[in-house]
Design a protein around this nucleic acid. Structure first.
Length: 454
RNA sequence: GGCGCGAUAGCAAAGCGGUUAUGCCGCGGCCUGCAAAGCCGUUUAGACCAGUUCGACUCUGGUUCGCGCCUCCA
């Protein structure tokens, strides 16, 4: 029985899909004007894990993750670069795809782009205007009237009075209420635009997700996810738009992942304290990064530092070390107690830290007993999380070898074996130290000497 | 100011009203020519103050500290 923490209810709830056996899930994806940072990596990995677990549980999942390819920052960046918006966005979509593939993130079933749904947005905005939930203001923009939606604030737990009391809300004279938000922006010089009943312009941000969700999953669907920072105003506004326009519940379960932090502060573009995925991957194996993310619960804050990634690398190495030379196929035995424990953890709001602990228990069991069933189970359960998918040798020899190629390393190993045979332990130790200085660790086992990257 | 979240051992991170979380690091031992890996053992917990209870890290209240949202943000 899967339980999901529903932001809307502020508690874990038993997950009941609208259609038995099927799950419709929408996740707010990236605005593509720059490389993805670790915060984006967390969203991608977390909801990849969620979709994998749902599928592993036998559910037929339709996973939609949108791409925002039109917005203020994109326009600004394209103008700065003097390039076409579509060239800019495609370049960063490609980069995102590369990064996510390295992180073991499976492609969502549908990746709709905002620019391909402008007609749908115009339709929804028209519907909102005709129902009295939106108005065409003097400056040409179309705004959503928050007063017209009684449940405004139900997701974020905010009331309009409290929001208005905040001094930080900039007063826009064209709005009827300071909290009203823009649905359609009238065209400005050097900006792309689309024709609409309100003249040339372009959509506001929030409307795209309402439209793309409905277009691909229906007006009412199961799960909507995203980063915690989208809870307000983005998701609140999505609810207001969708429910006012469609006269039905928009989403049953709202999921929000916690932030990646640096020095206990949120990693963000505006704070400038972000690390791009590709920067981190220069130093750390992508699976280590994925493991680092899944080792923490998705709703908890996750502090980034080299020390923590080093720690994650050591831990993941322990799992791979256990499987080294085991030559087993991943195979999940659902009757085993370890599966029960793993399932119980995952069904408890995707408790990956506890699920990962089961992996270590299995590694320990296998190390002690050599029971191949434990190794298969370890690999099988880890694979559900998108972990331990490579051969141990590839993982363990994949680090920095200081420019040495494999044949050179093997030649050194052969020379050392000869020295050992001749009882020349001084020479044997010298060779090992030489390799050690280059990041190679030699290990003498019952079946000969093996090597790995430090 | 409004709303919300959190505080667990050296570090990271979970569950749980009473029974070893887990990983990394440290220490002792086994194994090894020496190592490494592994195995066994082991040191460090539950911010603070009250309350409920036979019993609280776990529930309740308060205090302190940290963080987030309220503006673009995953």
């Amino acid at each position: 029985m899967l339980k999901i923490y529903n932001t809307l209810a502020r508690e874990k709830q038993i997950f009941i899909p609208m259609v038995a056996g099927k799950v419709s899930m929408y996740v707010c994806g990236m605005t593509v004007y720059d490389f993805c940072h670790l915060g984006h990596a967390r969203v991608m990995v977390v909801f990849d894990m969620v979709s994998r677990w749902l599928r592993s549980s036998g559910l037929d999942v339709t996973y939609v993750r949108n791409i925002t390819d039109i917005d203020d920052k994109i326009i600004k960046r394209a103008n700065e670069n003097g390039e076409d918006i579509s060239v800019l966005t495609q370049r960063f979509i490609d980069a995102m795809d590369e990064d996510s593939a390295l992180l073991g993130v499976l492609r969502p079933d549908i990746e709709p782009r905002a620019t391909a749904h402008v007609d749908g947005m115009i339709d929804m905005i028209s519907a909102l205007i005709s129902k009295g939930h939106a108005y065409h203001a003097e400056n040409g923009d179309v705004f959503y009237s928050v007063n017209s939606f009684a449940k405004y604030g139900k997701l974020s737990g905010k009331s309009l009075e409290d929001l208005r009391a905040g001094e930080r809300v900039e007063v826009d004279t064209f709005k009827r209420d300071p909290m009203d938000f823009v649905l359609w922006k009238s065209v400005k010089p050097n900006e792309p635009s689309w024709d609409s009943p309100w003249g040339k312009g372009r959509p506001g941000w929030h409307i795209e997700c309402s439209v793309m969700g409905a277009c691909h999953l229906g007006k009412h669907f199961d799960i909507h996810g995203g980063g915690q920072d989208l809870q307000f105003p983005h998701h609140e506004n999505e609810i207001a738009q969708s429910e006012a326009a469609n006269d039905c519940t928009f989403v049953n379960y709202w999921m929000h992942n916690g932030f990646v932090r640096v020095d206990d502060e949120k990693m963000s573009k505006s704070l400038g304290n972000f690390f791009t995925i590709r920067d981190v991957l220069k130093k750390y194996d992508a699976e280590v990064v994925r493991f680092f993310i899944l080792r923490a619960h998705y709703r908890s804050p996750l502090n980034y530092s080299d020390k923590h990634l080093d720690d994650a690398k050591q831990a993941l190495t322990r799992l791979y070390t256990a499987l080294r030379g085991a030559d087993v196929v991943a195979k999940v035995d659902e009757t085993a107690a370890t599966y029960e424990a793993f399932k119980a953890a995952m069904d408890d709001d995707f408790n990956t830290p506890e699920a990962v602990a089961v992996l270590f228990d299995l590694a320990n069991t296998f190390n002690k007993s050599g029971d191949l069933a434990a190794a298969s189970q370890l690999k099988g359960l880890a694979n559900i999380l998108g972990l331990l998918e490579r051969s141990p040798e590839v993982f363990m020899q994949g680090g920095s070898t200081d420019g040495l190629d494999v044949s050179a390393i093997e030649a050194k190993i052969t020379a050392r074996v000869e020295a050992k045979k001749a009882k020349d332990f001084a020479e044997a130790d010298r060779i090992r130290q030489e390799l050690s200085a280059q990041g190679i660790v030699l290990e003498d086992g019952p079946h000969g000497t093996t090597w790995r990257s430090a």
